[in-house]
Amino acid sequence: MLTLDNIWAAYGPVQVLSGVSLDVPAGKVITLLGGNGSGKSTTLKTIVGAVKASAGSIRFEDREICDMEPREIVPMGISLVPQGRRIFAPLTVMENLRLGAFARRRQEKSKDDFESIYERFPEIRQWLNRKGNTLSVGQQQLVAFGRGLISRPKLLLLDEPSSGLAPILVERLGEIIKKLKEAGMTILLVEQNVHLALSVADFGYILRDGKISMAGPTASLIGDGDLIRHYLGG
């Protein structure tokens, strides 16, 4: 569904991605692991077009999207749930959800979209008129998922959803991802929490210094002693 081929990206003089290639097949959960500053978040930002790749190609459903703007990429069916959730604090939950569907502008269907979100996360219905900054971290997590899913994406990008979550919430997060997978969602999951990532993903990539240093089915990665070495950069 999504293929990155030899992607390079830099922030000014700092080279962040030095030739990242990876493949996300439809219906699978793929995880991208790596330490701090290895370029995981940048990879996701490059996919949605928020960071421009200096070289390489990104193909989504056989279309080259590397040179497109986020406002063109998002309606094609890619949705990014950003790191730290980044709920719009001065906006209500309802307004946050409406923004999730901003790029689609298919307002006639939006009622169904909202209903499907309430079905998945029934709690959200009670918070609709609350401001973003009055939500707890766990509540924000659900709203962030709702905001990401309301546009009915074909591909969901999750940027470290577990960061800042209490262990019990991480557990819930794992269940949410598994349920999405059962429903046929394609997911690219960036994580620092190796345990969580490997328990939900089918295939994993390890990113180190802007390059893929290791890749394989999660089953093989779990047993591999090299994982720790690659991950910690030892």
Binding site: V48, E69, L80, E95, L99, Q107
Partner: peptide, 26 residues
Amino acid sequence: TLLGIAWRASAYDSYTAEIMGVSFDR
């Protein structure tokens, strides 16, 4: 209006608004 909400979102956090498809330039 959706456009008005998008403006408020962008004024608060233009990066997140951008990845929702709200172009900062616009």
